[in-house]
Every structure is written in structure tokens, then in C-alpha cells.
Design a protein around this nucleic acid. Structure first.
Lengths: 159, 159
DNA sequence: CAGCCTATAATTAGCCT
DNA sequence: AAGGCTAATTATAGGCT
């Protein structure tokens, strides 16, 4: 975002990623605090990262627990469908973009669409990993993550 | 934060506050998505506001519930902080592994989506994509939305 | 590695439609 | 209210110490 445009893809360099994480974490928390103050809304955030010894809880544990509690106590219908989550947010963005693109496409040429999309592709390079391998490995671990954590928890409590 | 410095205090004007809320909410979610992608961390946020009919959950409900669950099942801070025992060692290993896996998964997804996009471009349409594809691709697009818009703008002005 | 610095990218307040 | 525009502020990548 400065000195150079950011490539929005996992930062493989360890120290660079760590540094970016620290910077952006504080940026994010600042922004969060601002919107909370400016608009008097109730919010919380939780982040787990390998760079913090403990989860980062914003704005604080009490507030987080209150918000979580309020969230969890919502009647089922509210928790189900109409939530304004990131996915629908992103979908809206896509729809708007597509509208614009379609509009322009009418005015100009089809291959312009191709060029526009190439711009999108500039956002990141191709990974050089085997698809099958990654799917298998990530699948196994994520499937058993909960189980693993429970196990660790038990171990901890039992000494 | 532009045209005038912001006074970090509750905005009493209704419509102004609402507008600021909408703007900053998008900004916040975008930043959140970015740090998640860049650093492969696990995070969630929940916001209650009078301007949304429902709570805003980021990045989505499932992720939020997973993060919340992980948070609630965590041992108290003092216990986990400085212990260097078998468990925390194992935990560190787990986190490192998760980190790698998440990284690979994301790269993999990106790789696949990029190819999908290429195919769409060559084939000239998005008609046969699933909702999931669209969501993923929308990420790619929204990352570059500004770029696209500038591009379109230039094309438009240049004829 | 952790801060500090600075050039740029990105966000956004106030206007206008 | 909702969107577009642009000036101005803010965030931050890369360098340096």
C-alpha cells in the first residue's frame, strides 16, 4: 500500500509477514475503535495468530463476552439467513463490479472485458504447489482440529 | 479524515453518522479480509448497529463460531502464557502446521480460481460457475476493484 | 528483531447530483 | 437515501539503524 502496491496473497517470508501482521493488527484495531466511537455501535473482534502468545481480543474481554453472548442468544431465525456477513458483502461488490463491466462492455468491445480481467489477475501469481497434495493435507488436519484441541485441553487440565 | 480532520467523537447528525458507518464498515471488513489473507490468521468480528437489520458477522458465521468456540475453550491467560511444557510445545507445533496448511490451502484456492478465471475469459462467460466460485472470484475482483474502475475510467475518457 | 522514516497507496469527509 | 467525485488525511511497504 505504499512504496509498492500490495499483492494480496499470503506473505511467505516469515519476518515480512510478521511485520505486516503487527502493523495491520494495530491499524485494524484503531479503525475498529474509531467506528465504535463515531457511531456508538457495539462490536468485538477476536484474532488468533502464531505471532501472539494469546488471542487478541478487541476492545476487551468483557465487551467481547457481552457481544458474543448477545450474538449467541439471538433466536435461530436471526442467526440463519439474513446476516450481513463478509460473503454477502463481497457478493454485493462482485455484482456491482459486474454491472459496471457489463455496462462498459456494451459501450466498447468484448476484448476489453478480457483486459479488465487481466488487471484482476495481476493481483497475484500462480502458486507452484500440487493441488491434490494440499487438499489432502489441509483436509485431514482441519477435519481433526477440534479433536486435537480437545485432546490438548484434557492433557492440560489433567496435568 | 479528508477535507477535514476527524473529531473522534460520536457523530450526532443522524444521516452523517449512518453514512460514516456504512463507509467505515466496508473499510474495516476489507482490512480484516486483507490481514487474514496476508498473514493466514484465524479471526472473526461481530458488530451490532442500529443501521443493519442484523448483526454483521465477519468473515462468516461458521468461521465466527469456530473462533468463538476456540476462544471460549482456551485456558485462562496466566496458565497458557509462560508455560513451556509438553502441551505448549505441541500447541506451537500445531499452530505452525496450521499456518502452513492454511497458507497452502489459500494458495491452492487462489491458484484454482485464477485458472477458473482464465477459463471464463477464454470461454467468454461466467455462466457455469457455482456460487462458491463466484464468491472466491469476487475476492479476486474486489481486491482489484479500484484498479478496474480506474482502468474503465481511463478507457471511457480516451474513447 | 523492533523502531523510525518517508514515499506512496488507500481511505474517506464533505459536496453535489 | 444512495452514489460519484476529489481533496486531504491516514495507513503502511520497504529501507535503514
Amino acid at each position: 500500500m505504499t512504496r509498492s502496491k500490495v499483492n494480496l496473497v499470503y506473505i511467505s517470508n516469515d519476518s515480512a509477514r510478521r511485520k505486516t501482521y503487527r502493523r495491520r493488527k494495530s491499524g485494524l484495531m484503531k479503525k475498529a475503535q474509531e467506528i465504535t466511537k463515531l457511531c456508538a455501535i457495539e462490536a468485538c473482534a477476536i484474532m488468533f495468530s502464531p505471532y501472539d502468545p494469546e488471542p487478541v481480543v478487541w476492545p476487551n474481554q468483557l465487551q467481547a463476552q457481552q457481544v458474543i453472548s448477545r450474538y449467541r442468544h439471538l433466536p435461530p431465525p436471526q442467526q440463519s439467513k439474513k446476516l450481513v456477513d463478509q460473503e454477502s458483502f463481497t457478493r454485493q461488490m462482485l455484482e456491482k463490479t459486474m454491472e459496471k463491466v457489463t455496462k462498459k462492455r456494451k459501450e466498447n468491445e468484448h476484448n476489453q472485458m478480457t483486459q479488465v480481467m487481466y488487471q484482476c489477475l495481476n493481483g497475484g501469481g500462480f502458486g507452484n504447489l500440487t493441488i491434490g497434495d494440499m487438499n489432502n493435507m489441509s483436509g485431514l488436519i482441519s477435519q481433526n482440529l477440534r479433536e486435537i484441541e480437545r485432546f490438548l485441553q484434557r492433557r492440560h487440565h489433567n496435568g
